[in-house]
Design a protein around this nucleic acid. Structure first.
Length: 485
DNA sequence: TTTTGAGTTGTTCGA
DNA sequence: GTCGAACAACTCAAA
């Protein structure tokens, strides 16, 4: 039987559950098909960087398929219609794909399943995107967790108990019938999304190489140092795997497998803590996938609905200053300029910039959420929404609302010498460490000495943190008072 | 059913 | 400069 492998956000040949099953069941008679869905091209959350990463990874996937006797079929249009047409054209008896859990994906996949089955075509889907799927981790009451820590305990207990197993490997030989209609893979620019960012290398080979670099016990010790070094943005101490996990050029299962090897290979408690911290990031990913699957309304409003009443100011000029990295707070601006330049931002900076937009600029977290989605190669609705709601204090964990990041203190704590800030704000290059996170404190003479005129070469702070902090506290208190009323 | 302990990542203030 | 307490109340999860 010929089987269609419906390629979605699993752009790889290794460790791919739907692909492995499809090859096994079809004896290699496989039609790998990606449907470029016009709905996604029109979505407000789509950005050039992620589209570029997707398309170039598809190009690489096609090349990899060709070395094994196959090729990629690219279709454009509505997935149900395209898959149905392809199945009829090629005489395929089944469609296999890996499950996805966003509201849009669930709706789309449900429709594909029912319409194809009505047409006599079998549909099978597989766990692949998550380590544990949304329904898999339940509390004692058989309900779903909404707090991370107990979720993590259960998640990790099941892994440690050996309940989790990956099926790893790649098909050696694929036989795709020749002569089927396929379209050339376009570039992002050809689809109306000119690329302006320096995006990291897409594709499966790059993803696997990054994981090897990060997990390699003998050389980098990167996983082992992760727990402490990951907070220093000037260091290259994070895995940089987020876009690969977003588009599936690397398997989450391969990540967990590598991290468990590192974890089990040592008795050194710091090393184990580092590995566990990184594994925790995979659990966070599952956690927010699960939150979105069970509470799809979070894409429209606050997880804790009372916080929908927050009266944001949404000042357009302040939002623009934040987006373009011109707030006058160096650690915030460096983070935003990293995002704009590279379609990626260090996690510590994501927290700092998100806190600043919501609690210093008093802008709705959804404005930041949308901007991140457009700019990030790794932008994922579940993780991005979870992160923003956490920063805004509207989300799953009961973060005290008075936990407001101080951009100066955060800079001094996590970038004490200003190495990171200076990399993205060259105008601050001559400043001594003492001033690098508060350049507005330079006297006129010092501004001349260091070649930096505040207000001309670099902006004065657009808001006063101390004052805005009080305003944010009052804003959140007002919602709290309303809840009591 | 009731009770109890705890909750990713922080800041400020005053001793 | 360092340290500990205060900053609120609420909800979740499990005993």
């Amino acid at each position: 039987m010929i089987i269609i492998w419906w390629v979605r956000r699993d752009l790889r040949l290794h460790d791919n559950h739907a692909l492995l099953q499809a090859v096994e069941q079809s004896g290699g008679q496989l039609l790998p098909c990606f449907v470029l869905d016009e709905t996604l091209l029109r979505a407000v959350w789509t950005g050039a960087a992620r589209l570029h990463f997707l398309l170039e990874s598809l190009r690489e996937l096609d090349r990899a398929l060709r070395t094994r006797g196959g090729y990629l079929l690219l279709r454009r249009g509505e997935p149900t219609a395209e898959l149905l047409a392809l199945a009829r054209e090629a005489g395929a008896g089944a469609v296999y794909f890996n499950r996805d859990y966003s509201p849009y994906a669930l709706r789309r996949d449900g429709q594909v399943q029912s319409e194809l089955e009505q047409a006599g075509i079998a549909v099978r889907s597989f766990k692949d995107l998550a380590i544990w799927e949304p329904d898999a981790i339940r509390s004692g009451e058989d309900s779903f967790y909404t707090v991370y820590t107990p979720y993590w305990r259960r998640w990790w207990a099941r892994v440690e108990a050996g309940e989790w197993q990956a099926s790893l490997g790649a098909p050696k030989r694929i036989n795709t019938p020749p002569g089927l209609a396929t379209q050339p893979i376009p570039t992002a620019a050809e689809l109306g999304f000119p690329l302006t960012q320096q995006v990291q290398t897409p594709g499966e080979a790059a993803g696997r190489a990054l994981l090897r670099r990060f997990a390699d016990q003998t050389r980098a010790q990167a996983i082992g140092d992760y727990a402490t070094a990951r907070d220093i943005p000037a260091l290259d101490a994070t895995s940089r795997l987020s876009p690969h996990l977003r588009l599936g050029t690397l398997a989450p299962a391969a990540c967990l497998h590598a991290a468990l090897e590192a974890y089990r290979a040592t008795d050194d408690e710091q090393q184990r803590a580092g590995a566990r911290a990184w594994i925790g990031e995979l659990a966070w990913r599952d956690f927010y996938i699960q939150i979105l699957a069970h509470h799809p309304y979070v894409l429209r409003g606050a997880f804790r609905r009372a916080y929908d009443a927050l009266a944001w100011q949404n000042d357009a000029e302040l939002l623009d200053a934040w987006q373009t990295g011109r707030t006058g707070y160096p650690i915030v601006d460096a983070g935003m300029r990293q995002l704009n330049a590279e379609a990626w931002m260090h996690n510590r900076l994501r927290m700092i910039t998100a806190s600043f937009l919501t609690k210093d600029l008093l802008c709705d977290w959804r404005l930041g959420e949308r901007y991140f989605m457009r700019q990030l190669a790794c932008g994922d609705p579940a993780a991005n929404n979870g992160g923003w709601q956490w920063a805004a204090g509207t989300g799953t964990d009961a973060q005290p609302f008075f936990r407001i990041f101080n951009p100066t203190a955060q800079g001094q704590r996590f970038d004490p010498e200003g190495h990171f800030v200076k990399r993205y704000l060259p105008e601050l290059a001559n400043l001594p460490a003492k001033f690098v996170h508060e350049p507005w404190k330079l006297s006129a003479a010092e501004q001349r000495r260091y070649g930096l005129q505040i207000g001309a070469d670099y902006p004065a702070p657009v808001v006063d943190h101390k004052q805005r902090r009080e305003q944010a506290l009052a804003l959140y208190r007002s919602v709290h008072a309303e809840k009591q009323a």
